[in-house]
Structures are given as C-alpha cells and as structure tokens.
C-alpha cells in the first residue's frame, strides 16, 4: 500500500480527461452553483409526484380561488382553485423533459450531419450546410411556430419542433470542429495505417467534437425550455390541464392585476431554470475550452 502511494505521488496525479475537466470546472464557482441547482431540479422533477403537497390537476378548492401564498399553499392558489406549488413541481418534469429530449434529439442528428459534412466535404457538405443556412435564416421561435403549425399542437410536437430548430446549430458546430481535426497529424497517421472512414470518424474525430457539443448542449437546453414554454404560452404546446409553466403563465394573465402571484411563480421557475442552464453552460465552456487553459 505504502509503496504504491509513493509511486503515484512521484508521477503526480494521473490525468484522465475526467479529472482534468473536474479540476478546471471546480474553479468556476458560478458554474458549480448552477450545476447544483440543475441537479436539485432534476431530483425534484423525478420526485415531483411524491413531494407535491397536492394533486396538480385534480385537487381544487373553490373557496380559495386566487388565494395569495399561505402556509397551506406556499405559492398560493390559481384561478381554478389548484395549488400552484404542486403544479410548478409537476411542471418541472415537463419543462426539463421537453428541454432534454428536444436538445438531445437535435444534438444527435445535428452532430451526425456535421461530422458527415465536415469529413467528406463536397456535395454532402454543400447540401447539408445550405439546408442548415435556410433553417438559420428563421428566428428560432418563428421556425418552431411554423413547425407546430404544420404538425399540430401538443407537447410531443413541440419537442419535435424544438429538436428540428436545434439541428442546424449542432451541425455547424460539429462540422467546424471536424474540419479542424481531420487535418491534424494524428488523423493522417490513423489514415496512413489503413483505418476506414467510419473508424476515423467515430474513434478519432467524434471524441474531439464532444466538448463543444456538451457546452452547446447545456446552453441550448435553456433556449429550448424557453421556446417550449413560449409555444405553450401561445396555446400551441401543452394542453390543459397539464401544469406546463408557459401554459400556467398564459392562464395567469387574466388575473394578473388582482392575483400577481399566479404569474410570478411560473415566471420565476422558467427564469431560474433557464438562467441555471446558461450559467452552467458558461462554466462548462470555460472548463472545457483548451484555449482558455490558464494552468
């Protein structure tokens, strides 16, 4: 035991990519706090049905309509007599799921297309990138509204819409990294010993794109949550009585003058979640970007 410990100390710490990342990420105080917040949020989302004090959809108390926050109802009661805290907790599930699933789908498809475009160049590159340019030309929310208009409303379609509008960004990101990586000597070396294109892409280039994709992934979740909430706010996303934050905000509009808490809490939930993801993304970027390495 003793011998081994001495040995490790002699050659310094072994630097796996993971503890290299962790070492740098620890320094991003804000990023760490945001990360903890996100972890808590995910835990809440998973545990929501057990920790929510009331049934989010089927509990109602018509004697407490629009009641302000109290001990019994920490976030108050909405216009239909439902407990706002329970609805926000359940809503975390929907918003996080919408954010994760849509961005994950967009990231997988986008990265794959970007790798192909960047590695092969030529006509594949031109077609993929021109389509991406067309999608880029639309403001995100407008594109999402257009897609929902074609597919019809509802949560599932909102996720598809947000995934589609995430694809071009990931494609462009992966393509840029691929173009840089494939000219490096180690790739040439792999090719010279006879590796197939597929091996080169999957084993040697793809890992190089991961840090950029991860950073962008976390930044993108914030945007996606906002977009999904916006679509629900406009009545195109989650349908009543689903406790989606954007839909709750929409329903609260009518009573905003007399019962502002109905709008404040869902708005705060969206705000805090999106901010946390963006700050986490910033922290990850600083930790993962080799150019920012200030060891």
């Amino acid at each position: 035991m003793n011998d081994r410990a001495t040995l490790v100390a002699d050659v310094e710490v072994i630097r796996t990519p993971w503890n290299e990342f962790w070492r740098k990420f620890k320094r991003q105080k804000i990023g760490v706090v945001a990360g903890i917040f996100v972890v808590v949020l995910v835990a809440i989302a998973i545990a929501a049905p057990w920790i929510a004090p009331y049934d989010a959809e089927n509990y109602f108390d018509y004697d407490q309509l629009n009641a302000a926050p109290s001990m019994a109802h920490w976030f108050g009661v909405d216009a239909l007599g439902r407990d706002i805290l329970s609805r926000i907790l359940m809503g975390a599930r929907i918003s996080l799921a919408a954010g994760f699933v849509s961005v994950a789908a967009g990231a997988v498809v986008g990265t794959l297309l970007g790798l192909v475009a960047g590695y092969y160049e030529g006509w594949a590159d031109r077609i993929i990138m021109r389509i991406a340019d067309v999608l880029f030309a639309f403001p995100g929310i407008l594109l999402a509204i257009g897609i929902v208009a074609i597919l019809g409303g509802g949560e599932a379609n909102v996720i598809v819409a947000v995934a589609i509008f995430s694809i071009p960004t990931f494609a462009r990101l992966a393509r840029g990294t691929t173009l840089g990586l494939k000219r490096l000597t180690f790739v040439e070396a792999v090719r010279s010993i006879g590796a197939t294109n597929w091996t080169i892409i999957s084993r040697h280039i793809f890992p190089g794109t991961v840090p950029a994709v991860i950073v962008y992934f976390s930044l993108r979740i914030g945007t996606s949550i906002i977009t999904a909430a916006s679509l629900s706010f406009l009545g195109m996303g989650a349908q009543p009585p689903t406790p989606e934050w954007g839909a709750m905000l929409d329903a609260a509009r009518a009573d905003m003058l007399t019962a502002p808490h109905e709008a404040i809490f869902p708005a705060l939930a969206i705000f805090a979640t999106v901010l946390a993801f963006n700050l986490l993304g910033d922290g990850l970027r600083d930790a993962l970007d080799p150019r920012l390495d200030r060891r």
Partner: peptide, 9 residues
Amino acid sequence: QKVTQFIQQ
C-alpha cells in the same frame, strides 16, 4: 378559457 378548464376539471 376558464369555463372550459373548469368543465374539464
């Protein structure tokens, strides 16, 4: 909007 959501409930 409120009437229909109430009826739904």
